[in-house]
Every structure is written in structure tokens, then in C-alpha cells.
Amino acid sequence: MNCEEAIRLIHLDADGETSAPEGEALRAHLLSCEGCANEARLVRQTARTMHRLRTSMPVLTQPEDLVKSILAGISGNTPRRSRSGSIMEAFFNLSARPGFRLAYAAVVLAFVSLFMLQQADTFRSVEALGEKLAQAQRPTTPDVQYSITIEDARDIIGSSELEPLIEGTPVSVSSERISVRKSDLASLAPSLGSRLASRLLASSDTPVERLPHLIVDIQQSLTSSLTLRPGGKDR
């Protein structure tokens, strides 16, 4: 017997499937072949170990306690009703139905359209808000320029006194007119004198009732009487 045949018989022998003559021949070979004898020991040992593992059932201690734990774990829960499983499974089952994909696409499109409309509204709202902010930052009343002709000014205070009077002040002088901004007029009124100040004030197109603060300021600034002419224009 050669080793190849011996190995085949060793495995059959472990399962009790060798004939008596095969068993005799195998034993004779094992006496003279150390390698095959070791293989036979290993196969027997493996078979014995596996047999013990199979027949040694792990012992479940306190089985009643385990039942109680399980029943406590399920209390308050009932078996799930859906046979189709999870929500995702239900979705995929539904998706196989005719028309579902078209309806699904329509719903998605509707949501996308709604989203875009909402975005457009948002953009418009932001734009309107920006405009409101810009308006809020602008002066509520424009800083009006009051102006009269140099000729009128000279008539009021005399030609020789006009130039020293306005020199170094915010009053601007062109070839024909002198001008002053509304915001400067109140502070300038005392130095300009009541007549020139009132004439400059009267040159504005702005109705008097819209200039209450300026009027009060001028009234407080001037000691002499000040004649206001609503809505009038100097030229």
C-alpha cells in the first residue's frame, strides 16, 4: 500500500467505512510509515473532538428567566402589521406599478416649481427691502439751496457790506447769485441779518409748513421780527 491509498483509507476508517481487509492493510502500513501514522492520529483526534463538540450541548441555565426577559422585552409591542416590510420596501413595490413613475415625476416637478416661485418671491422681497433701506438712509427733505441775485442782496444790505458779510461763510457766490444751503441758513441767519436771511428763506420752493424746524431755528436766532412768505420765490 502506498501513502496516497493509506490517506484515503484513513479518512474512510474514521467514518467506519473500511472493510476488514482494508483495515488490516491500513494498520500494516501505519506500523511502517510514521507520516501516515501521524495523519491517522490527527484524523482520529479531529473526529473525536468534533463528535464531542456536537454531542456537548451548551446548557442554558435559568431558562425561565430568559423567557421572562423576552416577554418583558415585547410587552407593549405588537407584531408589525405590514407584510411588505419596511417603508422603503413598500415604496419600491409601489414604484413598479404603471403610472407611478409619471405621477412621481409630476409631484417632484410641482415641488421644484413651488420652490422656484418661493425663491422668486424672496428675491423680490429682498429687492424691495433694499430700496426701503436706501430710502430710509436718504435725507427726508433735500438740502435745498436758497439763492437770490447779487443785485437783490446788494439792495438789502448795501453793496459795500455784502462781500465782508459773506466772506468765510458757507454762502457761495457765483457771477449773478449768492446761494446758501438750508442746513446752513439757520446758523447764518444772525450774521446775515434778518432781511437777507428772510429773503433767502423766501426763495425756496419748499412750503413753509414743511420747514418747521428751520423756521423755529431762525426765529430763535433772530432778534428782530422775521417776515415769512409761504411758498414764495425770490425771483
Partner: peptide
């Protein structure tokens, strides 16, 4: 092993309709 048995039977209960 006890924990696994307990967890397994709770799963059995939840999905026994399947």
C-alpha cells in the same frame, strides 16, 4: 449568547407576521 437569544426572539416577535 443569552443576550443574543433575547434580542433574536424580540426580533422574531416584531416580524413574525412576515
Amino acid at each position: 449568547a443569552r443576550d443574543v437569544v433575547q434580542e433574536s426572539f424580540i426580533r422574531v416577535w416584531k416580524s413574525i407576521r412576515r
